[in-house]
């Protein structure tokens, strides 16, 4: 029985993806459609793996985009955690600064693009800044809410050992909020990846976002669809890597057997 159920769960996802490809194939075979067939898309993918567009093959475009995401990401993690801790742990800092944050937070990151381009041109800086904005916000919010929702018993336990406010932060509040912070980092990574694609679609000479727009300009729908799929797969891989990292950093979250 157990084996049968395992088998079902191995087969169902394949069925789902198979159905998608089936529907895709049917749509792409309609008269006059622009949708490329799966086979055309796959062949286009193989071509851009080796033949450069704008002096770069697909892996290079992906690496260019990833590099932008990761350089912004380092800053977003450090500054986001610090800001989140300040908001969550020091009510006065929160009272002073969080209204500004709340005001800026709902602005979709891509709405910053025009201003960033006018201020910083079309080089690397505006793209990295955009990714930073997209990644910073979820990290701040998750860190803050993680710290604010700590079980008060754990704080009391720390206090009963004579911990001062700073010791409580480093020995109780931060470790207790690690899962929330990591969840924020995960959201930040996918948000940052979306931002970089958006920025590259508007102004770039390389990167996966640039490739999609090139496909649009050339009417090359197979190129567009293969880039879209690559964006999805990269995003999936990034989040899989972070899930692994969560297991390493918070083993206590993952060994729930009770």
């Amino acid at each position: 029985m157990k084996k049968f159920s395992n088998l079902i769960y191995a087969v169902l996802p394949v069925l789902g993806v198979g159905a998608l490809i089936g529907v895709w194939t049917i749509l792409s075979l309609q008269e006059g459609t622009l949708i490329p067939t799966p086979v055309e898309t796959w062949e286009r993918f193989l071509v851009i793996m080796t033949d450069p567009i704008s002096k770069a093959t697909l892996p290079v475009h992906v690496l260019v985009s990833l590099k932008r995401v990761l350089s912004a990401f380092g800053f977003a993690i450090v500054l986001g955690i610090i800001t989140g801790v300040l908001f969550g742990w020091y009510p006065r800092v929160k009272a002073l600064l969080s209204p500004i944050f709340e005001l800026l937070r709902p602005i979709p990151p891509i709405a910053w693009i025009p201003l960033l381009i006018l201020m910083f041109g079309i080089g690397e800086v505006p793209k990295i800044l955009l990714v930073f904005i997209g990644a910073f916000i979820p990290i701040v919010m998750n860190t803050q809410s993680g710290i604010e929702s700590i079980d008060p018993m754990l704080i009391k336990a720390g206090q009963s050992f004579g911990c001062n406010h700073r010791q409580l932060l480093f020995h109780v509040a931060l470790p207790a909020s690690t899962p929330a912070i990591l969840a924020g980092i995960k959201m930040a990574l996918s948000s940052g990846w979306m931002c970089v694609v958006a920025a590259e679609m508007i102004a770039a000479k390389q990167g996966v976002g640039f490739l999609i727009v090139r496909g649009q300009e050339a009417g090359d729908t197979a190129l567009i669809v293969s880039c879209m799929l690559v964006i999805g797969v990269v995003s999936f891989l990034l989040s899989a890597i972070l899930t692994k990292l969560e297991g390493v950093l918070c083993p206590w979250q993952f060994k729930k057997t009770k």
Binding site: D151, G162, P175, A176, T178, W252
Partner: peptide, 27 residues
């Protein structure tokens, strides 16, 4: 002084051994 609370208060991110060490380390 040390305090055993009514509600559970072991640090969930520490192993049994680390929990027992934690008070000593904080002191």
């Amino acid at each position: 002084i040390s305090f055993v609370f009514q509600e559970p208060s072991a640090f969930p991110w520490l192993t049994v051994e680390e929990n027992i060490r934690s008070g000593l380390e904080l002191k």
